[in-house]
C-alpha cells in the first residue's frame, strides 16, 4: 500500500492507494480506474464519474495537472517524506527565514518601486513588469524587509526567477 500527502493551495489531502480498484482520500474509500491514452493523457474514473486529465509538468514532487476544465498545481510527498520534512522544518523554526518574491511571468522590468531596507506589506505593489503590451503590477505575496533586489530596470526576466529577497 502506498500513502501520500498532496497539497493544493495550502490545504492537504491524504491519499492511500489500497489496490488496483480502490483508493482512500482522507479516509473515505472510493473506487477508481485509470487508462493511459498517451504518455501525458489519462482517463480517470472515480466512482461513476469519468474525468479527462493530463499531466503537463512534473518536477521534484511538484505537478501541474489538468482535470476536465480545471488546471491544478500541487505538491506530493510520501508519508515518509512528509515526516522527514516536518522534523526538518521544526528544527529550523527559529532561524531567520528568507522569503522570496518571484516573477509570475516573463516580461520586462519597467520600474522597481521598492528598495533594500523597505518594509513590505503583503499585497503592496513592488514592481511594474511589462508583458503582453500591458503594465502589470507585481504585488508582494509576503510581509518582510527587502534584503536584496535581484533584477534591474529595463532588463527582461524569465518566469519564476527571484525578484526580491525579504527577511
Amino acid at each position: 500500500m502506498s500513502e501520500f500527502i498532496v497539497r493544493i493551495n495550502g490545504s492537504s489531502k491524504q491519499i492511500k492507494i489500497l489496490d488496483d480498484n480502490f483508493v482512500e482520500v482522507d479516509n473515505v474509500k472510493l473506487s477508481y480506474s485509470i487508462t493511459e491514452l498517451n504518455h501525458s493523457k489519462f482517463i480517470l474514473k472515480i466512482n461513476n464519474k469519468v474525468y479527462q486529465t493530463s499531466l503537463w509538468n512534473k518536477s521534484n514532487g511538484e505537478m501541474s495537472l489538468q482535470i476536465n476544465n480545471s488546471n491544478i498545481d500541487l505538491s506530493i510527498r510520501t508519508t515518509l517524506q512528509e515526516k522527514a520534512y516536518q522534523l526538518l522544518s521544526a528544527s529550523q523554526g527559529n532561524a531567520d527565514q528568507i522569503k522570496i518574491i518571484k516573477s509570475p511571468m516573463p516580461g520586462l522590468v519597467l520600474k522597481i518601486l521598492k528598495g533594500v531596507g523597505d518594509n513590505i506589506i503583503k499585497g503592496e505593489t513592488v514592481m511594474i513588469l511589462e508583458a503582453m503590451k500591458m503594465e502589470n503590477e507585481i504585488k508582494a505575496n509576503v510581509d518582510g524587509i527587502i534584503t536584496e533586489i535581484h533584477v534591474s530596470e529595463g532588463k527582461p526576466v524569465e518566469k519564476y526567477i527571484s525578484l526580491f529577497s525579504l527577511k
Partner: peptide, 8 residues
Amino acid sequence: AASILAAL
C-alpha cells in the same frame, strides 16, 4: 481527482 491522479 487531481490528488488521486498524482498519487497514481
